[in-house]
Design a protein around this nucleic acid. Structure first.
Lengths: 256, 256
DNA sequence: CGTGCAATTGATCCATTTCAAGGGCCGTGG
DNA sequence: CCACGGCCCTTGAAATGGATCAATTGCACG
C-alpha cells in the first residue's frame, strides 16, 4: 500500500475522482507527513481547531475522559480518515484524538481546503460524503446502547472489516487488528475482563480468529447474522471490495 | 413563542443574524408548514432524501429498529432543529425520524438551501455550526456506553434543558417534557422498569421534579455535579440564557 | 533477568433485566 | 353516567449479564 494513495482511495469510495484530483491528494500526502508514536495524543479536548488532519497510515481514535477517569473511545480513525471537518466553525475540540498505533498524518490548512471545496466540486462532494458517513457511523455506535457485549464487539469487528476493505487494507478475510482488549472495552463500554470472555465465546462459535494482532473472520455473513449487523450505514453502496493489494499483513499496522 | 421565530432563534445561537436573514427564515417557516400527529413517522429508513425538514414546533426523534424489535432512539429533535443536512449526498435515510408529540415542520427544497448557502455566508456558517453541534451531541450520546442508568438519564435531562433554554423554550427551571418513561428507556438503552426506579432515586435526592409532562430541575448545578455533566459539547458558548417568554407551559408541547 | 503490559482465569457482587401484576388516568361508546 | 380498554406508571420478586476484586501466565523489551 502506497501511503500517498490512501486519501484518494478513501475519497473515491463515493465517486471516482478525475483529472488532477488524485494527484492533488497524493501531493498533499507527500508534503510533510507528521509522525506520531503509539498511544500519543494528536489533539486534545480544548485545543483550538485550526488545521484539518488526515490519517495516512496507522490507527487512531476519538475519545473523551470523564472526571473520574473513565475513558470512552468514541470512534476509530483509519487510514484515509480526517480527524476534523470542523471547517473552523467550532472554536475548540470537544474531544481528544489519540493514536492507537504509530501513525502518519498530513495537515491541510483551512485556506487550501476552502480553495479545493470551491474549485473541485467532485472533491467537495467526496468530503461531504465522508462527513455524512462519519455521522452515520457515530449514530451506529449509539445503537450499542441496546446491544449486549457479544453484539457490541461483533459490530466493531464488522465495521472495521468493511471500512478497511473499502480502502483495500484487508487481506481476504483478514485484517490487521492492533487494538488491545482494554481498548475494545473502552470502545464498547465493557470491562476488559468481560471483553476477554466474550471474545472466547466468539472464538468457540468459530466466528472469529483473533491472534497476534490479526483478526480473521472466516464467514462474515455468519458473523453478521449472529449480531444482527447490516452495513447500510457505511454508505459504501454496492461497490465491490477493492482488488487484493501486495502484502498488507506483517508490515506493521503503523506502516512506519 | 411565535412559531415563525424559532428557526432564527436556533441559528442565531452561533452568531447574530443580520439584514433580511431572519425574515427569510420566517417566510420559510410560514410558507406551508406540515402538520404531523404524535408518534408518526416523518421519514423512514430507506426513504430517499430529497428535502431538508425543519422542526417548527413539537418534539421528534431519530431512531433505528433492530430486526428483533428493539428500538433505539438516537437523538431528540427540538423546535429549530433540522432533520437532515444530508445535502443530497447520501441517497437514502439510514435511520427513521418519528414524532414524539404532534408537531409542525417546514420543508426546504435543496435548490433553495443551496442558494442560501451561496448567497448568505452568515446563514451558511450558522448551518455549519448546526451540523457540527449535531455531530457533537451524537458523540456525547455514545459516552452513555460508559455511564450508568442514573448518569444516562441525568445527561438526557441536562442536554434537553440547555438546548431548550438556548431557544427560549424554558420557563425558569422548568421545561415541557412530553416523553414517556418507555421512550426515555429507548433513548438510554434501559428498561422502562429501571428508568422508573432511577427516576424515583433522582426525585428522592431532590434533583428533579417530573410530573404531568413538566420537568423541573431545582438546582441545575447540583444535577450536573451528580452526573459529571459538562455542557461544552453543545457549543453554546458563554451566551446567556434567553430572556423569559410568555407562558410556554400549559399550551401543549406540540404547540399546535 | 527483572519490569511492565496484555491476556487469562476464578470467585463474588451488583446493576439492570425479566416476569408478573396492580393502579391511575383518560377517551370512547353503550 | 358508567363501564371498558388502553396506555403509562408503579411495585415486587427472581434471574442474569456484566462488573469488581484478585491473582497467574505469557511475552516483549531494556
Amino acid at each position: 500500500m502506497v501511503m500517498q494513495d490512501i486519501l484518494a482511495r478513501r475519497l473515491s469510495n463515493f465517486a471516482p475522482l478525475e483529472g488532477d484530483e488524485a494527484a492533488l491528494l497524493a501531493r498533499l500526502s507527500a508534503e510533510r507527513p507528521r509522525r506520531v508514536p503509539a498511544r500519543a495524543d494528536i489533539a486534545r479536548e480544548g485545543d483550538p481547531t485550526q488545521v484539518l488532519r488526515i490519517i495516512l497510515s496507522g490507527w487512531a481514535c476519538r475519545y473523551r475522559t470523564l472526571e473520574d477517569g473513565r475513558r470512552q473511545i468514541l470512534g476509530i480513525l483509519l487510514p484515509g480518515d480526517t480527524c476534523d471537518l470542523n471547517n473552523d466553525v467550532l472554536e475548540e475540540m470537544d474531544h481528544s484524538i489519540g493514536s492507537l498505533t504509530p501513525l502518519h498524518y498530513a495537515e491541510l490548512p483551512h485556506e487550501r481546503l476552502a480553495r479545493w471545496l470551491d474549485d473541485k466540486p467532485r472533491l467537495a462532494r467526496a468530503f461531504w460524503w465522508h462527513m455524512m458517513t462519519t455521522i452515520s457511523i457515530q449514530r451506529e455506535w449509539t445503537l450499542n446502547l441496546s446491544r449486549n457485549a457479544f453484539e457490541r464487539i461483533g459490530n466493531l469487528f464488522c465495521e472495521l472489516f468493511f471500512r478497511l476493505r473499502a480502502v483495500g487494507l484487508n487481506q481476504g478475510n483478514k485484517i490487521e487488528f492492533p487494538v488491545t482488549q482494554i481498548e475494545i472495552g473502552e470502545a464498547t463500554g465493557l470491562t476488559p475482563v468481560h471483553v476477554n470472555r466474550t471474545l472466547q465465546d466468539m472464538r468457540s462459535e468459530g466466528l472469529i480468529i483473533l491472534k497476534d494482532r490479526v483478526l480473521e473472520i472466516p464467514d462474515i455473513q455468519a458473523l453478521e447474522r449472529a449480531i444482527l449487523y447490516s452495513p447500510a450505514y457505511l454508505h459504501l453502496g454496492r461497490r465491490r471490495p477493492r482488488p487484493p493489494e501486495s502484502a498488507l499483513l506483517g508490515q506493521g499496522a503503523g506502516g512506519g
